[in-house]
Amino acid sequence: MYRLILSSAFLLFFGSQVLAAELTPDNIIGNYKVSARAGFMKVYLNFNVVSAQEFEIQRVYTSGRKDEVCKGKFDLNSHVFWDFDSLGAGKLFKGVFICPSKPDKPVDFNIDFKDKTTEDLAKGTNVTVTSSLAPGRNIQAHVKKH
């Protein structure tokens, strides 16, 4: 019985450490639901990180209609940020995507994850997005891994 309890505690401790890992290009692979408010408009996206360098993005409307799937490439870089309370290190997702209907119009964007972990993405978390679609604006978005 003692071994079972000890084994369970060991698995829980180390399992939770893996779940709360620092973000890397490999451990962010997966499907995400994103919602953001851009001015008076609420935008919903399916965001799929398919490899350590590539992703797909698709706008979804509340009616269930979906736009085309656009494909892109990304880098996940470390950066330093100021959080009013302290100086910290975080992750910045820098992506560029192209939609099939507009192959000559690449869209670039950044997602500032700050110090978020894989556990934060699994629970759902708020991030800051900047994009060439809305120059000079910081867009608050909610990201949740599915």
Rank of each mutant, 00 (worst) to 15 (best):
K105E: 15
I139D: 01
S63H: 02
S63W: 00
L133R: 13
T117Y: 06
D115T: 09
L92M: 13
E68D: 01
T130P: 00
I57M: 10
R65A: 15
S78Q: 09
S131N: 07
N77I: 14
K102Q: 15
E56F: 06
K71E: 12
V69F: 00
A122C: 00
Q140A: 11
Q53R: 14
T130C: 03
S78V: 06
G64D: 01
D115I: 09
K114Y: 12
V107K: 01
K73I: 15
K66T: 13
V96K: 02
I111M: 09
F109T: 03
G88P: 02
E68Y: 05
I98F: 08
I139V: 15
L92K: 06
A89V: 13
F97R: 12
F113W: 01
V80Y: 04
V49S: 00
S132F: 06
V96A: 03
V107M: 05
K114G: 01
G88S: 14
K102S: 12
V60T: 02
G136P: 06
W82S: 10
I98R: 04
Q58W: 01
N110K: 12
T130Y: 00
K116M: 14
D83Y: 01
K114V: 07
F113S: 02
A89Y: 03
S78C: 00
D112H: 11
K114A: 10
N126S: 12
K102H: 08
L92T: 04
F81Y: 13
K102W: 12
K94H: 08
P135Y: 11
E68A: 09
F97S: 13
D115H: 09
Y61N: 13
F84T: 11
K73C: 09
E54M: 07
E119H: 02
R59S: 04
P135R: 14
S78H: 02
K114C: 09
T62E: 13
L121E: 01
G72N: 08
G72I: 15
I111H: 04
V49Y: 00
K91P: 00
Q58A: 09
I139E: 02
V129I: 15
D83Q: 06
D83N: 05
S51V: 07
D120W: 02
F55E: 08
L87R: 10
R137E: 10
T62W: 05
F81G: 06
C70T: 10
F109C: 08
D104M: 10
F97K: 02
A89P: 01
D104K: 10
V60K: 03
I57S: 02
P135F: 14
T125C: 08
G72F: 12
G90S: 07
Q140S: 15
I111E: 04
T130M: 15
D67R: 06
I57Q: 04
C70Y: 03
T62L: 14
T125L: 11
G90L: 13
H79Q: 00
F81H: 01
G88M: 11
L121A: 04
F113N: 04
R137T: 05
L92Q: 03
N77T: 11
N110A: 09
N126V: 12
K123P: 01
A122R: 02
C70R: 10
K66E: 10
A122F: 04
L87H: 01
V129Y: 04
T117P: 00
N77Y: 00
D120Y: 06
G136F: 14
T125H: 04
V50C: 00
K123G: 09
L76Q: 07
S101H: 08
R59Q: 14
D85W: 08
D75W: 10
C70W: 05
E56T: 12
K91G: 04
T118Y: 02
